[in-house]
């Protein structure tokens, strides 16, 4: 078990490093996906089934969405050409080492709970934690995240509702492409 975990950890780190070595946006994106999949499988090895599977689900989906944005919002489409994956090297290196040290210190100093054996119902425990003691945090984080997404989309969108429905919002929408529900 330990061997499998170590192999997965090495894969995760190497794939993560590949993100900055390869010269293609697509390869960098999916190297990161491979790294996260290795992390997810490592969680499965630790018997954290729900967390492991959901990590893979979220991260692969996120990488696929990232592929949409990387073409959509990059001018001149450099994403389609070979390009270096690093910039601002000195600052990035400093930030990376700083974060690494911070996390390592955190890992070493946090009093980890000692459990005699792996939790049988980790999914249930996670659920009751989210809906119980961590409820306030989750309820605060969700609207903030949602507001950020809505704000981001409306800032990025070239056509607002005033373009679509007129200044008094009373016209029929003028869309270049009609939608599927016949509005």
């Amino acid at each position: 078990m330990l061997v499998v975990f170590v192999i997965l950890a090495v894969i995760a780190v190497l794939a993560g490093a590949m993100v900055f070595v390869v010269d293609s946006m697509a390869r960098a994106t999916y190297a990161l996906a491979v790294s996260f999949i290795a992390v997810g499988v490592a969680l499965l090895v630790l018997r954290l089934e729900y967390l492991g599977v959901i990590t893979i689900l979220m991260m692969v989906m996120e990488m696929a969405i990232m592929a949409i944005y990387m073409i959509m919002f990059m001018g001149m489409n450099p994403a389609l050409m070979p390009m270096s994956m690093v910039h601002g090297k000195r600052a990035a290196l400093g930030a990376a080492i700083g974060t690494f040290l911070l996390l390592v210190v955190g890992i070493l100093l946090v009093p980890w709970p000692v459990r005699p054996e792996p939790a049988a119902a980790s999914t249930q425990e996670l659920g009751s934690a989210l809906m119980g003691s961590k409820m306030l945090v989750m309820m605060t984080v969700s609207p903030i995240m949602f507001a950020a997404i809505v704000a981001g989309v409306s800032l990025a969108s070239a056509r607002t509702r005033y373009d679509r429905f007129g200044d008094d919002l009373d016209h029929a929408p003028t869309d270049p492409q009609p939608g599927g529900v016949g509005r």
Binding site: A33, V53, I56, L57, V60, M61, M63, A64
Partner: peptide, 11 residues
């Protein structure tokens, strides 16, 4: 698990 498998199809 099934849901994760079908999301990997995206990639």
């Amino acid at each position: 698990w099934f849901n994760t498998a079908d999301v990997i199809v995206w990639a």
